[in-house]
Design a protein around this nucleic acid. Structure first.
Lengths: 350, 350
DNA sequence: TTGTAAGCGTTATCAA
DNA sequence: TTGATAACGCTTACAA
């Protein structure tokens, strides 16, 4: 775009390429090594030259190349976060927390989305490895085995969060103890007179789902006194859920309380209940295992388990950073406890 | 660090470094160029060698280095998304849409968060440039000038979305026409008998805020008949907002309807109104300029402007990709229209 | 205190 | 069809 259309490389000005350390060196009239030393705060450069270098950096708008740095250093200050979805409020909060920590430690957080698809999860993580990510924080999908095997073989420092992967001893895990929450909540519901508890789940195949069912079963079984429990499989489609829900709550043997396994299901239940004319908590009580941002906006207010998302983020980041720095300690599995907030949506006493 | 404590480079196995194209070449007994040709589907390699190469790739778990690729190609298939915050539902949806497009085009989307801080915004974008991002999609902060100047100087292909930056002609913009939404909504509210409209805003300094006030003023002014309007500055702290809100709605000259500029403010208003015993829509009507995911869960259901977030994402991506590919066309400013969903939270007729 | 040069992994060019 | 090599931007060990 000079006077023909592509100027020869030796031509002046109008370069579209970002300035390199060589450009800076040339401009400042020093060697590349000197520029590098200035930029990395090494004390072997005289004040006068340092000044000239900094001025040249400023004038050229030089910002360095993380690509070249990463290649040279054989490590990239980039950390991956792999989540199944971005739209859940607590995953957004998680990304937010991690991003804050990452920036503070001069890392870059790069989020990839698996969309509940194990193959996609693997391919996304391959990309992260291709970018020489220093580490990975992963909310595992439904079938985490292949991905975790891959991370292990690639020796990628990895921390598993949110969803426990049972019998996984190769990586640190920071997860929520939903089992305890379900157990405690169920006991409380039983103590308040509820005798039939339904657990509404979206992914029956998930190992954590099976564990939750176990907890519910133990709580109800240990109580005796004719208390029962059941599982409602909600599927992935809201329209179809309406029918599923209607037939579940209209049958003779209907539950008095539903525990919803995530906020999507919670929202579906609220909508369906409203359109069926079911009043809360008189006709049906509801407890969500995930506290959405709108928990206080519904009428009645929503009972929910407040997940320690930010705490998980902090712990996971610290664990990951230790691994990135080479720690070879035995992996740990940390379980964080949620706080159960009973509000108007659960009927107490009878 | 040669052969004192670390094993010499020639030692067998146990390498922690990812395999390189050289390793593959060695293993397959071919040259690096051949391996590269195989991997890039060039047709100059004999079937037999191709097979050997692919086998070696598989055995070693070779995945390539995007750092080296990016360095060599002088361009990186990485696109930045800069947002002020991650917790808003529509920004999450935006990131989701863009991530989908990016992955489809074999790009990596890397999200950075400015936290409403212009300085942070600039430093985050500098990082993106250091990573040789091919382009940037930005939801500008309150003071976008310095950042946009920087992007322009760095010749970084950039698309501005969501918030219009007035008089900015250097970049494509894909924004929401809130002005029209406010104008139309106000006219409708007036037609339904409302005579005093308050616009509740969080960032009075934002240019878009001023434009919204303009629209409201035009709509109300053009109506005549003693209609009035006002602005409520909500601040950034929910606790303090309660008092601000209380004194606003309790005064003699209280509005009959509030237009909330985003879903955070909407949620604050709902909470405060409830604790003050204000009934909706009888005592006060509410319209949100941002439709939250929980719009249908409140009682009454929330009136809101449904933002065409995914449409914006798609358009912005396509525009950006054209720029990345070198298009030098005149920048465009596309305004998308939201759909106003009037629901129970707005009183109609009198 | 400063300059020089090797090497990180990849691709394109050129010679064989 | 294949192999060798230069170049991309940066850091660092070593020479001056």
């Amino acid at each position: 775009m000079r006077d023909d259309d592509a100027a020869p490389e030796s031509a002046t000005g109008n370069r579209r390429k970002p300035p390199t350390i060589n450009d800076v060196a040339q401009r400042a009239g020093v060697s590349v090594g000197t520029v590098s030393n200035v930029l990395n705060h090494r004390s072997t450069v005289s004040a006068a030259r340092r000044e000239r270098v900094l001025q040249a950096v400023d004038e050229l708008g030089f910002s360095g190349s993380m690509l070249a740095k990463g290649m040279r250093a054989q490590s990239n200050s980039l950390v991956g976060l792999c989540v199944p979805h971005t739209a859940f409020a607590n995953l957004a909060a998680l990304a937010d927390t991690l991003d804050e920590r990452a920036v503070g430690a001069d890392y870059e957080l790069i989020q990839v989305v698996s969309r509940y698809d194990s193959r996609r999860e693997l391919s996304r993580i391959r990309r992260l490895i291709a970018y020489r990510a220093a580490g990975l924080i992963i909310v595992p999908s439904l079938d985490p085995k292949p991905v975790l095997d891959h991370c292990y073989k690639a020796k990628l420092p990895t921390v598993i969060i949110n969803r426990l992967v049972p019998d996984e001893r190769r990586f640190d895990q920071v997860t929520i103890d939903h089992d305890k929450a379900i157990y405690d909540a169920s006991r409380q519901l039983l103590a308040w007179g509820h005798r039939h508890i339904t657990l509404a789940v979206q992914f029956p195949a998930l190992s954590v789902t099976r564990q939750r069912i176990d907890s519910l079963s133990r709580a109800v079984g240990g109580f005796g006194g004719g208390a029962r429990w059941g599982v409602l499989e909600c599927g992935l489609d809201e329209e179809r859920f309406k029918d599923i829900f209607a037939s579940h709550v209209r049958r003779r043997d209907a539950p008095s309380v539903i525990i919803a396994s995530n906020s999507t299901v919670t929202s579906w239940i609220l909508q369906s209940a409203r359109s069926l004319g079911i009043r809360m908590p008189d006709d049906l009580s509801l407890l969500s295992l995930e506290e959405p941002e709108w928990a206080l906006l519904t009428e009645p207010q929503l009972s929910a388990v407040l997940q320690p998302t930010r705490e998980i983020g902090r712990i996971a980041w610290d664990l990951l950073l230790k691994r990135v720095e080479g720690s070879a300690e035995e992996p740990v599995s940390i379980r964080c406890e949620g706080r159960i907030n009973f509000r108007g949506s659960v009927a107490r006493g009878t």
